[in-house]
Design a protein around this nucleic acid. Structure first.
Length: 464
RNA sequence: GUCUCCUUCGUCUAGGGGUCUAGGACACCGCCCUUUCACGGCGACAACACGGGUUCAAAUCCCGUAGGAGACGCCA
């Protein structure tokens, strides 16, 4: 029995689109589920737009998402001679031919066809040319079958049939003797022993062209699975202008890889009512029967929700390591101690690492400014209360969250006011704004010295 | 324009002829918890695109219509 072999074949002409990441994930899950191989191929034949840096970032982001590959990645540009040889062989076998039509000539015909309201298709003028005339630069075109119909049994889309009269004599080899994408994919997929081609929906119609190449070469045609594209909230293809479209973008926005994976998996695939799905479950459950055929829209709010979930699930130490690169400076041992101590409460309030970074500022340093909202808790009466809080902080033996809470509650009671009045004033002093974990927890973590500094600074600031 | 695909709550989806007065999740709204914000708990709102068939019975099958998307390169 032949083992399943799938591949992910990005072109390094930019960063990885989030839709490509999903394609990679589906390929990977399919391979792992079936105990097959997941291969990588870098389609760098567009030399002008492909860069080393993009290739590196693709590897990096896949590793980050824990999508590992099984064999040495294939670099497509290394196979150009092979592609060329295949094209020439097809000419000798009478399956392809040299075409001497100039681009201008073709453009004119195309325009004419368009004007007449007809769809353009190469007219096959050079179909008889099996010889290469010395000193010329013809392209090689495939002699497409245009009788009958071709049906693909797609793993996602089901049976798709096209009339072969639609088929075009596509270019296999350009006039500069470089292979076209159509030729390269087919040859490489064949040479790599790819059994299942899983890719974006946008390739569905290309599939029929590629099948023709497989047939001309007399090669086994792999199975195909075309997964629907991901759209933005407005229903058009997700792109940069929707805010973030690449995996890198989401990484920088502070999303965890496991959240992105989980979200992408559920976008277009389902397993009953399950929403939170571990890697292991994903591998166990993944199959193409449950991949939807309709395109889906990217929903940032749901991603955030999942991210919040996975942040709460992460242990505090790993979260601390995670937020380091987002910080402006190195953390001191003391700052680390505080953040770690307060992490349980911090992570519960953050949906992204970026938000966690903001929330952690309480433990990085004293507030530089105070939000206007603090004004509400900066009246002379509040200052008097804070003076008493200072007294409490000075008088207790050590700062304990529960103990502080009890004492301040007592204080509120004595003054006949609600706890919130004092708590918010303290919060303003500690954080510079009015949203944070428990102020008593913060005081206990910060310790007496820093707590007093911040309380006094606040009092001084508003007493002027 | 031609070809191909798609169409269940705002969004992601469950559903594969009767168990659907259509289930879950996110978002939104309300309540509870509460020192703020979150978390958590409870609840509300909310969908089978439309029109024809087939059938005792259709969200589920068939055919149209409309809308959306993708492909039509010597880009990948």
């Amino acid at each position: 029995m032949n083992k399943i072999r799938v591949r992910f074949a990005p072109s390094p002409t930019g960063v990885l689109h989030i839709g490509s990441v999903r394609t990679a994930l589906f390929n990977w899950l399919f391979a792992r589920h079936n105990d097959g191989k997941f291969l990588l191929r870098i389609e760098d034949t567009d030399k002008l737009r492909s860069t080393e840096e993009n290739t590196r970032s693709i590897f990096e982001i896949l590793r980050w998402l824990e999508i590992d590959w099984d064999e040495e990645p294939v670099i497509q540009s290394g196979n150009i001679e092979r592609h060329k040889a295949v094209a020439e062989e097809l000419v000798t076998k009478g399956k392809a031919y040299y075409c001497y039509c100039s681009p201008e000539e073709l453009a004119a015909k195309k325009e004419e066809a368009l004007k007449a309201g007809k769809s353009y298709k190469y007219d096959g003028k050079c179909r008889g040319c099996s010889e290469k005339i010395a000193g010329t630069n013809p392209v090689i075109r495939l002699k497409a079958e245009n009788e009958g119909k071709t049906t693909v049994n797609d793993m996602v889309q089901g049976e798709v049939t096209i009339d072969n009269s639609q088929m075009d004599d596509l270019v296999l080899l350009r006039s500069d003797e470089t292979p076209t994408y159509m030729l390269s994919v087919v040859v490489d997929d064949h040479d790599m022993g790819v059994t299942h081609v899983i890719r974006g929906d946008d390739h569905l119609t290309n599939t029929f062209r590629q099948i023709q190449i497989y047939r001309a070469c007399n090669w086994d045609v792999p199975k195909f699975g075309h997964i629907p594209l991901i759209y933005g909230p407005d229903g058009t293809k997700l792109s940069k202008r929707h805010g973030a479209a690449s995996a890198q973008d989401y990484k920088m926005l502070g999303y965890l890889p496991e959240a992105i994976s989980n979200y992408l998996l559920r976008l277009g695939w389902s397993h009953g009512d399950d929403e939170i799905i571990t890697r292991k479950q994903a591998i166990d459950w993944f199959d193409f029967d449950n991949v939807g055929r309709s395109p889906s829209r990217f929903d940032m709010a749901k991603l955030q929700n999942l991210n919040a979930h996975y942040m709460r699930e992460r242990d505090n130490r790993s979260l601390l390591d995670y937020l380091r690169p987002f910080l402006h400076s190195e953390l001191s041992a003391e700052q680390e101690r505080c953040i770690l101590a307060g992490m349980d409460s911090l992570k519960e309030r953050a949906k992204t690492i970026l938000e966690l970074v903001d929330a952690a500022q309480v433990y990085v340093g004293a507030p530089q400014t105070y939000d206007d909202a603090c004004l509400k808790y900066a009246t002379p009466q509040h200052m008097k209360l804070l003076d008493e809080v200072v007294t409490i902080v000075n008088s207790v033996q050590s700062l304990d969250e529960q103990d502080l809470c009890n004492r301040v509650k007592e204080l509120a009671k004595d003054h006949g006011i609600k706890l919130v009045e004092i708590a918010q004033a303290i919060r303003g002093a500690l954080c510079g704004h009015l949203v944070s974990p428990s102020v008593f927890e913060i005081m206990a973590i910060l310790g007496r010295e820093k707590t007093l500094e911040r309380l006094n600074a606040y009092i001084r600031h508003y007493q002027k």
